[in-house]
Design a protein around this nucleic acid. Structure first.
Length: 249
DNA sequence: CGGAGCGGACTGAGCATACC
DNA sequence: GGTATGCTCAGTCCGCTCCG
């Protein structure tokens, strides 16, 4: 349905992130492509701020999950995805210092593996504060060929590392999200709570009514992992279903 | 010399935020 | 659920240093 503002309305939506397929069905049509006066022109009060932060964190987690699922296992048999945990030996608590070291590490590892300064390494990283206050990183490497963990530890050079291949996790995105800070930490206020390399695959969003219908009809019921109904101020009663084609029965 | 790695300048993608 | 805004930071290019 076209709207006079040039926008259109959507009743249902499908988002495909790798093997994970999400289906949204809205009670109220959702308008897209219209002009709104969103944006910022004043500072929110404390109560709104709290709400905004929770919103931000929820969305960040959602985007993180989708991005990871859209990229994991997307780079062929020879570059299977790996989990990497980077820990600082020294008690590095400053995010700027940590990020700086992290970026240098990515550059070195990229150079070692691909023999070029062009950034080929594809990754997603989530910083986390440990109990002792030190920063450490959970990284998903999407296209790293086999490298001995001893070598990676040398390249890191800031402490110890742990690397695992990812094989028996159905929903890697959800798994990584667990590492993302639960409550938005003050130390991460206004900062990125995860970051990606450029050039990653993006989740595919389908809004065309016929295509959505076709997909809905072809989804195998036994692969459904989530079914929830919730109410939202803007979409009304919303039905959410999630399928994972990797789900083992 | 040449490989490895750092860092500065520039640029644009995308994250956090605010509001509908 | 959506969009708009602001701005940080990741990628690129490339020159420099260090060190064998």
């Amino acid at each position: 349905m076209r709207l006079k503002s040039g926008g259109y309305s959507v009743k249902s939506k499908v988002i495909i992130s790798g093997s994970v397929i999400e289906v949204y069905e809205y009670e109220n049509s959702v308008y897209k492509g219209y002009k709104s006066n969103g944006g910022r022109d004043k500072v929110a009060d404390d109560e709104s701020k709290e709400k905004n932060r929770k919103d931000t964190l929820r969305r960040a987690r959602q985007n993180l999950r989708r991005t990871v699922n859209a990229n994991v296992w997307a780079y062929g048999e020879r570059c299977l995805p790996k989990f990497l945990t980077l820990t600082f030996g020294d008690n590095v608590t400053d995010l700027d210092v940590a990020h700086y070291e992290f970026l240098k590490f990515i550059k070195r590892l990229n150079y070692l593996v691909f023999g070029t300064k062009v950034a080929n390494l594809r990754y997603t990283a989530v910083p986390e504060f440990q109990k002792r206050g030190a920063v450490h990183y959970h990284v998903v490497l999407y296209n790293l060929p086999f490298v001995e963990s001893k070598v990676i530890e040398e390249v890191w050079g800031n402490g110890f590392i742990k690397i695992n291949k990812i094989d028996d996790v159905d929903n890697v995105g959800a798994y990584v999200c667990k590492y993302m800070v639960k409550e938005l930490d003050d130390r991460l206020r206004g900062r990125k709570c995860y970051f990606n390399s450029r050039g990653l695959f993006k989740p595919i969003v389908i809004e065309d009514e016929k295509k959505v219908e076709n997909i809905k009809n072809s989804l195998p019921g036994e692969k459904r992992t989530v079914f929830t109904v919730y109410e939202n101020d803007y979409t009304g009663i919303t039905i959410y279903k999630q399928y994972n084609l990797n789900k083992s029965n």
